[in-house]
Amino acid sequence: MKLLFIFLSAAVVNNFVLSYFLGICPFLGVSRKISSALGMGAAVTFVMSLTVVSTWTIYHKVLIPFELQYLQYVVFILVIASLVQIVEMFVKKSYPALYRALGIYLPLITTNCAILGLALFMVLKEYSFIESVVFAVGAGGGFTLALLIMSGIREDLDLADVPGPLKGAGIALIIAGLLALSFMGFSGLISI
């Protein structure tokens, strides 16, 4: 039951994009088309799951026993950067079709704050291994959901008559604000 709560909380109630503001850059940058939003969402969810598996292991099995917690930021970002690189090489060699679909999004993920944010929240909330993995999948799902909704709206927005200064980023941010308001409807759904 607790696992389900963690999943729902990460996916909708405390949506990474709309209430923690993590991953705003791809949210505004890649959300122009539904297809690229799906690709980015899938790539992020995939890397997120791998990230928690490796950072959880390193944090609890290496950093804590050796009392090296103060190195966590340096270690986490290095792990994430090399992980993304390895995933990219592996997918390119073994699954060329998948690579063509996700390829361009993978390098962008290293600087996606949602990934590092996930690792930091995992430490802050003191999740166990299984809980961390569920948390990662939920967060990735929530990110994909927000990106999908946004891209659907923006595809229609191309035809709308937006006032000059608001064009582009301005209106995108205001739409995000309205989305965040509607996601508030989920709060109180579960408490954790």
Binding site: G164, P165, L166, G170, L178, L181
Partner: peptide
């Protein structure tokens, strides 16, 4: 109250970006 919520952050920044666009233009 809405301004302290996440939605307020998006709305506030959206308006600021638009104002900045006006000034730069």
């Amino acid at each position: 109250l809405v301004m302290i919520l996440p939605a307020g952050a998006f709305l506030g920044l959206g308006v600021m970006v638009a104002v900045m666009n006006l000034i730069v233009r």
